[in-house]
């Protein structure tokens, strides 16, 4: 790892000021992508700004029809939260499938979606539930947040503070982990919202990152059942193709994971 300067921010305002004062600053939350990348010398930020100690970024609040998760809340807290399990069990279950117990003790929601790794799980829930991303500057709808592979709508000096998830009528997430790395080769989050609308988000499969499947949404809107997925034609166009799976294989995984998710919801 190249030399860097570590800072611990006590507030969002201080983090923003440290970030704007740095030549090439990076925010450190769980650090489970950033630190390994720095160790491989693929990233060499001049300054590291640790935001995990900022109280307002931590915690879970479930009230009414919304579950709000602070951006620096570790996955393990979401996985085990009675409030999340009660309101959106699919979200707690998804958090419990990320990485391994040690990763979940440290990794954060904000870090996961800001990084927008195409194989990450949380983007599936954020887009699948139509959550709202709160930052220090504005609120961003999930549909506008993810803009590509490792790309989001965030500005350079913008910090995610929390994510507000609407409580659905039914939801579930199913993923096919790579047998070796355990990263999602395809993950599908299905949600039937309380207004009857259906959202389906696919992660791990798109060559432009997480996306919504309008074909699956249409099929499940008229018939919320695993059988409804059978008649849907999922194109391999625009899907990732790599040593782990071809685009056609991932297209089939999307259908299979969608069926499993609907059955589990």
């Amino acid at each position: 790892m190249y030399q860097t300067t570590y800072h611990k921010a006590a507030s969002v305002a201080e983090a923003v000021s440290l970030l704007s004062g740095a030549e090439d600053g990076k925010l450190l939350a769980g650090g489970h992508t950033l630190l390994p990348t720095m160790k491989q010398r693929l990233a060499s930020p001049s300054d590291i700004i640790d935001i995990t100690g900022i109280a307002e970024l931590n915690g879970i609040d479930a009230s009414g029809d919304t579950v709000t998760v602070g951006a620096a809340t570790p996955h393990a807290d979401v996985e085990t939260s009675a409030a999340v399990k009660g309101a959106i069990p699919a979200l707690a279950a998804l958090a419990g499938t990320i990485g391994d117990p040690h990763v979940r003790n440290v990794g954060t929601l904000g870090g996961s979606i800001a990084n927008a790794d195409p194989a990450a799980d949380y983007p599936g829930a954020v887009l699948g539930l139509g959550a709202t991303v709160h930052t220090n500057q504005r609120t961003i709808a999930a549909d506008d947040f993810f803009t590509g592979l490792f790309e989001t709508a965030l500005n350079d000096d913008e910090i995610i503070t929390s994510v507000a998830f609407p409580v659905p009528a039914q939801a579930a997430y199913a993923k096919f982990p790579n047998p070796a790395s355990r990263y999602s080769m395809t993950g599908v989050f299905v949600a039937k919202m309380k207004d009857g609308s259906v959202r389906v988000a696919v992660t791990g499969a798109g060559d432009d990152g997480v996306f919504r499947s309008s074909a699956l949404e249409a099929a499940l809107s008229s018939n919320w059942s695993a059988d409804a997925v059978d008649g849907v034609d999922i194109s391999a166009d625009g899907l990732l193709s790599d040593i782990h799976a071809s685009a056609a294989y991932r297209a089939n995984l999307i259908k299979q994971m969608a069926k499993r998710a609907v059955a589990a919801a």
Partner: peptide, 23 residues
């Protein structure tokens, strides 16, 4: 996971934490 320690009661990978974070 060979580097797992307990930090404030939680099991974490000590190879993926900066020492400064342990203040």
């Amino acid at each position: 996971g060979a580097c797992v320690i307990h930090m404030n009661g939680r099991a974490v990978k000590a190879c993926t934490k900066l020492a400064a974070q342990a203040e």
